[in-house]
Design a protein around this nucleic acid. Sequence first.
DNA 1: TCTGGCACTCGACTGTAGCGAGTGCCAGTC
DNA 2: GACTGGCACTCGCTACAGTCGAGTGCCAGA
Lengths: 340, 340
Amino acid sequence: MGLDDRKLAVLRAIVEDYVATQEPVGSKTLVERHQLGVSPATVRNDMAVLEEEGYIRQPHTSAGRVPTDRGYRLFVDRLSRVKPLSPAERRAIERFLVGAVDLDDVVHRTVRLLAQLTRQVAVVQYPSLARSSVRHLELVPISTTRLMLVMIADTGRVEQRLVELPTPVPADDVTDLRRLVNEKLVGSRLSDTPPLVQALVEESAPHLRGAMTTLSTVLLETLVERTEERLALAGTANLTRGGLLDFQGSLRPILEALEEEVVLLKLIGEAEPSTTRVLIGDENEVDNLRAASVVSTGYGPGSTIVGGLGVLGPTRMDYPGTIATVRAVARYVGELLAQN
Amino acid sequence: MGLDDRKLAVLRAIVEDYVATQEPVGSKTLVERHQLGVSPATVRNDMAVLEEEGYIRQPHTSAGRVPTDRGYRLFVDRLSRVKPLSPAERRAIERFLVGAVDLDDVVHRTVRLLAQLTRQVAVVQYPSLARSSVRHLELVPISTTRLMLVMIADTGRVEQRLVELPTPVPADDVTDLRRLVNEKLVGSRLSDTPPLVQALVEESAPHLRGAMTTLSTVLLETLVERTEERLALAGTANLTRGGLLDFQGSLRPILEALEEEVVLLKLIGEAEPSTTRVLIGDENEVDNLRAASVVSTGYGPGSTIVGGLGVLGPTRMDYPGTIATVRAVARYVGELLAQN
DNA sequence: TCTGGCACTCGACTGTAGCGAGTGCCAGTC
DNA sequence: GACTGGCACTCGCTACAGTCGAGTGCCAGA
């Protein structure tokens, strides 16, 4: 795989041109637009090598070259630098995010902002419950045998769930239950609660035992097992930019994939390392998204990560710009959350 | 506008055929597929009249006829009966909606169900706050100058909002505040609260006055002014059915409209009368949706209405079936809510 | 009022031809 | 050995002409 500097430069030029024009790029136009200092014939030879190595391909004979997924990968890894944000973008981010009034608001603003700036489909995961701690648990009696359980997490998330009690429970007992669960659980990570919840049942007074058992079941179900991850989506209309050229003519699989929360979470939620992740075309494990690329990263207050966010677009996307925007937005959101 | 019975039958046949085949329908195929008891020539004469009256049109000379928006309207109003649901559909609805665990769950299941049954884009509005009553208000101290206000409505909706207090407020005072707002507001409709909230400030003890003022502002903002209506969406992938024929080739405007919550709320949220509403093509006031039809209705426990739901699809849609499904789903959801 | 017949229209499809962007290869030069 | 200019070739795109056929409008007759 002897790719000298010039061949890399040719690849970079092809990617940049193709992203800009959306048309296969030929050797002649390439030397015209970029100062490569060599003739078209030489570029053609280089192209032949790049094609051999699988970085570019010809849609058909007598057409220019188009980068392959592998070509984009090389471009992203070795040929591009993260583009600094324009002052206008920076301002847009700041303006957009101030004045957010609660978590819902923050998430919605963020996802719209991301979609607008990148002109692609944006996805923002709500702060993960698994990475949140309990700030407060509230029990609101609906009837004598029904409670509304409200959990407030330190990330600002609020989850509620109806609890059907096996037997009527008087108001005083509800107060006791409330005190007990709060004493035991407040401050602990949700992922660490199962043993605590277990202990809660065992330690509770006999007359509370029944209610507490039901309550604990619901608690475990809601907060731990059914990892109730939520997310917000925006910018699907951006999929129609670039006519029907992107996504080989059919938006169908993409739209289908976007409806599957599980799929999206996998895409942007696994942001273990705090670095930005780029998945290009085929690298994607979801079949429906083989024609798309995803740029995602984690966000959270300070250096911790509580959730993921990212964008999805055609493989033919402006990677440097998109990566920069995604990172910047994630950083701003993190700062915003840190203020809480 | 003398449209005798046969002309109406011809129109009905045209609509049904076109909806089924998606192809302009000619006089010959029409008499073949439907027992009209007359010759193609006669049908042609009727068609000419129908076209004159604006109920059908020809995409081009030497093509069959296609219903106009006006034609669909006449069809819906006078030529179609609501199709009874198939047992399979009935079962699907029941199966889908049992086991819903909280409001979010109900809404999400409903919207997916609607999308699946109608094979169109489904929209479900959360129970409107304006039509809800306060069941409980909770104040959770986050710090000495910050409270989390949580409002639980009788419709199951839970809204939260951060309150920044002007001065630190001790825990005892928070207890007092909680008691006061609950005493005053629980049980009242949200739309009726403004005077009550006002009174709350005036009647509160001097040392609570400052905090109560801030609190009341937030209350009014969150619950009344910023009519925080939420909605859920599903089935956008269904827009791609029928190739690019529907929506005159561009999904763009549709997708854009679907991103605007305000627009959607207007579409399905204004379900004043409990009857089903059908908006066909041009009747739609949103420019982006001139190529689409919307079938919507209100839902709620018993005969009250707390929100709207509906579907959006091409004007060429199976109106009788869609209307039946939308109504049935709304009724089931209403029953489900009544159980709470 | 309905029907059969007939001439007409016009989009869809097919085949052909010319154009041109772009390529691969090769011989020649530095 | 690396680069370049030149040349023949490929093949998608566009334009154009011709054919086909579904569907129509109209009219005379039952």
